[in-house]
């Protein structure tokens, strides 16, 4: 932390992420849907590992309950029935 190109940029970002995660939780969305990790541009393998891990975890949580597309699809299906 604090080794950002924008100096304290990641320190500030980290505060916002903490706040947003708590606020999402309060709004009814799992905080795990938002994740922040610090990976340098020289750490490609770690970047891949982080993103893959996130995708895996997010799949376990299931689709976004606020997805507009999904809501539209279910409306269409109801109309068909």
């Amino acid at each position: 932390m604090g080794e950002c190109h924008y100096q304290s940029g990641n320190v500030m970002a980290n505060k916002r992420m903490t706040l947003l995660q708590k606020l999402l939780e309060f709004s009814g969305l799992h905080a795990d849907r938002l994740r922040v990790r610090w990976v340098s541009s020289a750490e490609a393998a770690e970047y891949v590992r982080e993103v893959s891990g996130f995708v895996e975890d997010i799949k376990k949580l299931g689709p976004n309950p606020l997805s507009v597309k999904r809501a539209m699809r279910s409306v269409r299906n109801e109309q068909k029935d």
Partner: peptide, 27 residues
């Protein structure tokens, strides 16, 4: 509540302390 619990800041209760989201921390 979050800002108080996570960052120990209570808005408007002190005259000299700034919000943690306004302080630019350079280490």
């Amino acid at each position: 509540e979050i800002v108080s619990e996570e960052f120990g800041y209570k808005t408007g209760y002190t005259v000299d302390e700034k919000s943690p989201f306004n302080i630019i921390e350079v280490k």
